[in-house]
Design a protein around this nucleic acid. Structure first.
Lengths: 149, 149
DNA sequence: ACGAAGTAGTAAAGTATGCTTACCCACATA
DNA sequence: TATGTGGGTAAGCATACTTTACTACTTCGT
């Protein structure tokens, strides 16, 4: 019945990671909605972050995102309905189609990049350029990237 | 029809924030499941991170978490069914009940703290103690905390 | 002291989302 | 020609909520 069996940690990264992740997501979605791309949802990043400029097959997109083909088909259908991507036949494989961004898709991507840049700028004013650079480098290394500029 | 209308950013924080957030979540849920608390889901953090030792009302928990009372009732019901929390009457208000953690709830909390500590330790081996401390400080400041130890 | 108005908790139902499994067809490759 | 692979439909499921509606209790104004 005794309370306080163990002392809780004074602070841990989750206290920041969770709200920061939410802030990141909401900043992008809100900016997209403001720019007229209100039908883009955060799960559509599975396409936007993995799609190549020359187009990418559904199977490949699904593999990169780590979800099933069927789930990816759904997301592609949604973005295609919104006019953000199109399916074009693959010249090298009659079964395959390549998903490509449309001009509208490119514009939406640019809006999201601007939203991210704005968020990073806000963070930089809080931390200063030196510490913000260090933060970016640290985060990048933690995800296994080289972080070699 | 021209492609490459704007250059995509070489790298941005989302590339790290998203996978790191997922890693954080999965590390806790996996460790809880391994310890026999498989019925705790990540949304239950809404309770665990906001609950006071003396107990907290549903209305207060909902306000802190930024969700509706009804949603909070659901999460409390689930955790109560699992034996992690109980509802006790509030002496000062006949309408109100206080949600309190049980011993099992406290044990689950400790498991999650250990999982977080282990994750932070793994990150520290990648970055070294100095840069890890700087990362923690930066993240903490970004969420509006003082970060004054 | 007393009725009106507000607040705490809750049940029930509905909605949006992000998936999965089970199948199936078309085409490619051996 | 058999087998595999790409794309797809249909259905189902778990999750994380919200809206609506109601009861019990408290507080406030008179």
């Amino acid at each position: 019945m005794s309370r306080a069996l163990a002392t809780p940690p004074e602070w841990h990264i989750g206290r920041a990671l969770v709200p920061l992740f939410e802030e990141f997501n909401e900043a992008i979605i809100a900016e997209l909605a403001r720019a007229g791309y209100g039908d883009v949802r955060s799960s559509h990043r599975h396409i936007f972050v993995h799609i190549d400029d020359e187009g990418t097959s559904i199977t490949e997109l699904a593999a990169r995102a780590g979800i099933s083909k069927q789930a990816m088909v759904q997301f592609v259908n949604e973005l295609q309905a919104g006019g953000y991507v199109v399916r074009v036949p693959d010249r090298h494989d009659g079964r395959s189609k390549l998903v490509r961004t449309t001009n509208k898709g490119e514009r939406a991507l640019q809006v999201s990049w601007r939203a991210i840049a704005a968020l990073e700028a806000r963070w930089e004013t809080k931390l200063g350029p030196r510490r913000m650079a260090a933060l970016r480098k640290a985060l990048r290394e933690l995800t296994g990237e080289d972080a070699a500029q």
